[in-house]
């Protein structure tokens, strides 16, 4: 049975009256057992969606429902217990003076007692592979390490949903890989719902479903394979598809049969193998 995890019902939002609409009549549903990616160019409204989910912003029109609770002023603290967020800038979300203190911050806010806190910090730092950095200060960590700490901070409060709001945008490729690896690992271990917001299409191959945003509207809702097939249109809205998808599309153009849009090298190699053996 599919339980609704996040639902947007005709949501519109703007930062000020008379200002331009950032989101226009956005509706979608994310079931609890799906990993969903929201993609879009800079300024497409994708980050606003994240902020509406945990009540950092409120919809001007329509309704946002998280795990059955409509997000309002009264319910935000309830919602925030269930939704953990990792933001874009690694520096601007690190509150503590050391790694341990930072992970503790969310627990302290919830009045968790000290002995439980220590176990939670230990476990979550272990899960993201940062246990050896417990006493490190933030300015001595790389961006990727800071983001892993941010993930640990989220895990420590054992939420049901994790939202990555362009959490890899400011990282180098190594940091980006670390984060995606860490996230997918903890997601599977702890059975969390994951919502990834990004403009990097390499990050969406793991998602069950992709919501493509353009100019404040839902432009497409589809599987990663379906998304990758629409190369031209995606480029028109400022996005780009991964190398494998591009190559597969080029092969398609020269009549090499591709039975299904490949997501990674291995799938494309398989397609080519089939082609090669059916001469």
């Amino acid at each position: 049975m599919k339980k609704e995890c996040i639902e947007f019902r005709n949501v519109s939002f703007r930062y000020s009256e008379e200002g331009p609409w950032v989101l226009k009549n956005v509706s979608f549903r994310i079931p609890a057992d799906e990993g969903v990616a929201i993609i879009g160019h800079n300024g497409s409204g994708k980050s606003t969606i994240a902020k509406l989910i945990n009540g950092l912003l409120f919809a001007d029109e329509g309704e946002v429902v998280v795990l059955g609770t409509p997000v309002t002023e009264e319910t935000i603290w309830e919602v925030r217990k269930k939704v953990g967020m990792v933001f874009q800038n690694p520096d601007n979300q690190f509150v503590g003076t050391t790694v341990r203190d930072d992970v503790a911050f969310g627990l302290e806010n919830r009045g968790v007692d000290r002995s439980q806190m220590i176990t939670a910090i230990d476990n979550s730092l272990r899960a993201v592979g940062m246990i050896d950095y417990m006493l490190h200060e933030p300015h001595r960590l790389s961006g990727g390490q800071k983001q892993r700490v941010a993930i640990a901070s989220v895990l420590a409060i054992s939420p049901q949903i994790i939202i990555l709001d362009e959490a890899t945008a400011m990282l180098d490729p190594k940091g980006r890989k670390e984060i995606m690896h860490t996230v997918n690992e903890v997601k599977d271990q702890q059975g969390l719902s994951l919502l990834t917001i990004t403009h990097d299409l390499n990050e969406i191959t793991q998602a069950d479903r992709v919501i493509v945003m353009s100019k404040g509207e839902v432009w497409l809702e589809a599987t990663p394979r379906e998304v990758f097939a629409r190369e031209k249109e995606l480029q028109e809205i400022g996005l780009d598809i991964p190398f494998v998808a591009k190559l597969a599309n080029e092969l398609g153009k020269v009549d090499v049969p591709i039975s299904q849009q490949p997501l990674n090298h291995e799938e494309l190699l398989e397609e080519l193998w089939t082609y090669h053996s059916n001469k």
């Binding site: 945990n54 950092l56 603290w77 925030r80 217990k81 967020m85 933001f87 601007n92 979300q93 509150v95 341990r100 203190d101 503790a104 911050f105 969310g106 627990l107 302290e108 806010n109 919830r110 009045g111 968790v112 007692d113 000290r114 806190m117 220590i118 910090i121 901070s153 409060i157």
Partner: peptide
């Protein structure tokens, strides 16, 4: 970020 992590002032807070 602090708000998203549940900060609501000193009341009811514990300390590590």
């Amino acid at each position: 970020a602090m708000e998203a992590r549940g900060y609501q002032g000193g009341e009811g807070r514990t300390k590590l």
